[in-house]
Amino acid sequence: MIEARNLSYTYESENNFKTSAVENISFSVNNGEILGILGKTGSGKSTLVQMLNGLLKPLSGEIILNGKNITTDFKNKYEVFSKIGLVFQYPEHQLFESTVFDDIAFGLKNQGLEKPEIHSRVIKIANMLGLNENLLSRSPLSLSGGEKRRCAIAGVMALKPDVLILDEPTAGMDLIGKNFLLKCLLDYHSQEKRSIILISHSVEEIIEVSSKILVLDKGKSVYYGSPGGLFKKDIKYLESLGLNPAQITQVMSLVKAEGYDIPESVLTVNQAQKEILKLLEKDGATA
């Protein structure tokens, strides 16, 4: 389990002005849980994420992984990196090896694993992410956009980290690409039973898969709890956090304004379907 306690980080801007990027953030992710972190650009998500795997040292606060403080209780930062896997935004920009196989194996080779182990891990993870075996011998630069993204993510997943953090994994993808990637991530989650932290600015993407949600605004935590609790926040509040509500949320909010008994924010189509069924059954009539 990974736990963040009162994390803070400030950075110095051009004119030596100290700006707080992240202030007093706390959360925990138990084994096998998925935490969704929401926030618009500039809310501190990326800074937080780099602290979580040890790239950035927090100004104050600590990060505890399975009872050990990542700053003080590990041999070196590489040990932390192998336990907390971080996938950056647009990870396909880091592909460099001559074959897909080698790129996915890069992290494993750095860990010093034996060749047979590397081979089996790469094949397994490539399969999990929908990368056919015939793609493994090709140059990663010859893949399609979606395949490149999955290849890069595979490179981190292959390390079998205790916690996998993905920073906006579906950024720039079309809906089919997004859905396929999210499906692969959920498959990984159900097979490996490891913790995942998903960062996004899209509510619909995260709400259905997360067991817990953390919402950031200007570096501070403004909501930390179950996804269901987010439904209770009204639409204007979500808008003020830069979480542009999905169309379905806006539609149902207009329906609610007419006096119907609907939660403050309906965040997904599935939930809207349930709410409408409830209302129709309440009236006891079906056509």
């Binding site: 780099q50 795997n53 790239l55 930062k77 590489y78 990196f81 192998s82 896997g85 971080l86 950056f88 990870p91 920009h93 880091q94 890069f106 992290g107 750095n110 860990q111 490179g155 981190v156 390390l159």
Partner: peptide, 16 residues
Amino acid sequence: EEAKKIVNAQLSRGAR
């Protein structure tokens, strides 16, 4: 800036 990001990404994969 891009180089910095790539260095961080590769570091996170254990690049020495």
